Simulated scan of single mutants.
Amino acid sequence: MHKMWWKILGSVLVLYATIAGFLATVPELPILHETIRNLYFHVPMWFAMIVLFSISVFYSIKVLRSNNPLDDIKAVESVNTGIVFGILGIVTGSVWAKFTWGQAWSFDVKQNFAAIALLLYFAYLVLRNAIDEEQKRAKISAIYNIFAYPMMVVLLFVLPRLQDSLHPGNGGNPGFNSYDLDSRMRMVFYPACLGWIIIGYWIYTLLFRLRSIDKNSAL
């Protein structure tokens, strides 16, 4: 049981954030209105994705140093899980945009760059499937992953700030401040972020264990 505490914590935080996200009071803001509740779901998906991609690049670096096949499995499974959270981030963002901007995909600069960032990691998976030899696949995909990670950071956090964007905090558009994200929302938003990050890590560990079992069975 002592090894399960973080899984229990993640489950409790997500359950709490989900219930409070729908039922707790939120600021009455023009345009956003009740859709601001999506902040509890949309943004945590991206945070979880970034953490998982960070884990992936860490193990990609280890692959080049150790040639350990388990490190390669950890790298690819964290990418697989991160992509799922990235897709959820885009879907929840599109739903939010539909009700606040009038259309699900307005070709906002951050929407476009987020889609390109995900395509970088889809390309990583395609690259892996195109190489049959195990050690060669591990090294080449590790090198690709190491270069893809800073590109993802630039696409999500740097380039959108250089252009006009409907997203808060980009292109001169003010981000969520103490007026928008008040103390009531922070009590839900921060646990939601931590909870979804833990759940994402948990899913990644499960996928790693399944892939390790398959690999050992094939030997």
Rank of each mutant, 00 (worst) to 15 (best):
F99T: 11
I131E: 04
V95M: 09
W196Q: 08
L23E: 00
Y16D: 03
V26I: 12
V126S: 14
I8K: 11
Y201E: 05
N173I: 11
G195R: 02
F176H: 13
D108P: 13
S217R: 13
I131Y: 01
V109W: 10
A97H: 05
E133K: 14
L15Y: 00
S141Q: 02
N67I: 00
L166D: 06
G169C: 11
V57H: 03
I55Y: 08
R184V: 08
G86T: 06
H42V: 04
Q111H: 14
V95R: 03
F208V: 09
V84S: 09
N80R: 15
A97N: 05
E77L: 12
I203A: 04
S183E: 12
L207R: 14
M152R: 00
I203L: 05
I116D: 10
R209F: 05
L120G: 11
A138F: 03
I31P: 07
K98T: 13
T100D: 08
G172F: 11
M1V: 11
L162K: 13
N129W: 09
Q163N: 11
Y40T: 08
F113C: 01
E34K: 12
M4F: 14
N216L: 13
M1A: 12
Q111G: 13
V43D: 08
I143M: 06
F47I: 11
S60E: 08
L64A: 06
N112V: 15
A104W: 10
K7L: 11
R128M: 00
I36L: 12
Y190R: 08
I199S: 05
Y40R: 01
Y149F: 15
R65T: 07
F189V: 04
G102H: 14
K98C: 00
L159F: 09
I36N: 02
A20D: 01
I8P: 06
Y40S: 08
I197E: 02
F53H: 03
I61K: 06
L23A: 13
N112R: 11
G200N: 01
F122K: 12
I146D: 03
Y124P: 01
E34Q: 12
Q103C: 12
F147S: 05
W101H: 13
A192M: 02
G171K: 02
Y124C: 05
A20H: 07
P150V: 03
L119K: 08
A123V: 15
F113S: 08
I199K: 07
I213N: 12
I146Q: 00
S106A: 15
R184Q: 15
I146R: 03
G195F: 02
F41D: 05
K215S: 14
Y190L: 12
V12F: 13
A104H: 11
F58Y: 05
A123K: 09
W5S: 15
S54A: 10
G200K: 05
L39R: 09
R65I: 10
A17C: 10
I8N: 11
S178E: 14
N80P: 09
D182M: 03
L9S: 15
G195V: 02
V153S: 04
N216R: 13
Y16W: 09
V14F: 10
G89P: 04
M4H: 13
I146F: 06
V84Y: 05
V153A: 10
G86P: 08
R184C: 03
